[in-house]
Design a protein around this nucleic acid. Sequence first.
RNA 1: GGAGGGGUGGCAGAGCGGCCGAAUGCGAAGCUCUUGAAAAGCUUUGGGUGAGAGCCCCGGGGGUUCGAAUCCCUCCCCCUCCGCCA
Length: 429
Amino acid sequence: MIDIRLVRTDFDSVLSALRRRGVDPGEVRRLAALDAAASDLVRRRDEARAAVKALSREVAAAQRSGEGELSEQLRVQSREKGVEAGLLEKEAEAAAEARREALLRLPNLPSSEAPDGAGPDDNPVVRTWRPENCSYAPWQRVPHWDVGRDLGILDLESGAKLSGSMFPLYRGAGARLLRALTNFALDDHLRGGFEEIRPPTMVKTATMVSTGHLPKFSEEAYHVERDDLWAIPTAEVPLTSLGREEVLDEGQLPMRLTAATSCFRREAGAAGRDTRGLLRVHEFDKVEVLAYATPSQAGDVHAELLARAEGLLAALGLEYRVVDLCTGDLGSSSARTFDLEAYAPGTDRWLEVSSVSWFSDYQARRANIRYRPSRGGPPAFVHTLNGSALAWPRIWAALVEVNRNADGSVKVPDCLRGYMGGQEAIPAP
RNA sequence: GGAGGGGUGGCAGAGCGGCCGAAUGCGAAGCUCUUGAAAAGCUUUGGGUGAGAGCCCCGGGGGUUCGAAUCCCUCCCCCUCCGCCA
């Protein structure tokens, strides 16, 4: 959530920043009004409570000095004040709740550097990278579901038999390729100074709420009712919640974390889209990078996370482009996001394989993640950043399409061979 | 799953229903002393909100009371033992 004090002290800039992302100015004005009402009630409630406390002390004093009658009078007065305070308390709570709801509805202020735009079509491509001698021959124009089936490394039918459509099953070298990708990426991030985490994949409701995945997106997540646990849609959920209610030392920042987990998405809103192959699946593996940083570090860390994801794509030899999400397409928690899209020649599409976001203090405020400045002073909210590096099904798809040889076999990228027992290619049957 | 024990400030650890937002110790910061350091002594040292006075926070929520860290209910979490188990 954004800082309510900004709404009080700098209303106009909040208004214009949110207007860039298409927020109705009326929403912001309504929030300001709710805030004023809530503050007023809090003040009146506190005055009533202060009176109760003062009277209570007088009751005690009167009792000590044996003035029974006076004590009884004061007791009655205090009780009346207490009733008044109780009523004001209820009102103040309701007002605070209304304010909180309005506040939670507002998205983050976009970074001043985020490009303006109304939707996905307005996202500028900031750069494109391609390997040397990059070209696509006819035998690379085969979609991965055909390549995978022909080589016996992707068995979508069996996945569907076990769990339903959009639950892929990889086998043989296909499964090993996934494992290689995960080890390759984790090792790379370890060398970059990241701490490897293996978090739980099922989390409590409170954990989903603190990252903003609930209640808004409950339709998108798998829920185990008996135990009231949620299957994580991304490792961002447990990793961001790691810092929940914590006060970190500034010396620990930036704190860099990486985790490989399965991710689960119901894709309820995307029924019928991308139903073929690996473009959209209910369960997939992903390596995530995440950082907590001070506000002054955040810009560099954002660039660092982006560079890591790009580095992996380049090492894998995939042509990719970097897209700067415009204000109309930015996720609601994010101040700035770069998407990475890899080119898959067989399906002839740019596949979103990573999303690298800077959330400023929006998530940290909601999850209460702070740091203690080493120069002293009160704890301040950290900035959170995260990125996928990378999401494997689409990478897997792009890889088998790009690396398909004329004879139907698929070349294993150099960087993965060590993780594949030296295997240079997945042979055609 | 069964039986017990426990959740208090950065940590450890006290706390008859009424100067308790909280003793004490450790840790940390500042100062004095010292060539410097150690030691010693003195001082300071939780968070939220608010312009401030104030108000709130002793695992979460609710209740009793003029007044709750302290009493009651409830939920959560942790620990020990037993059982089961990859």
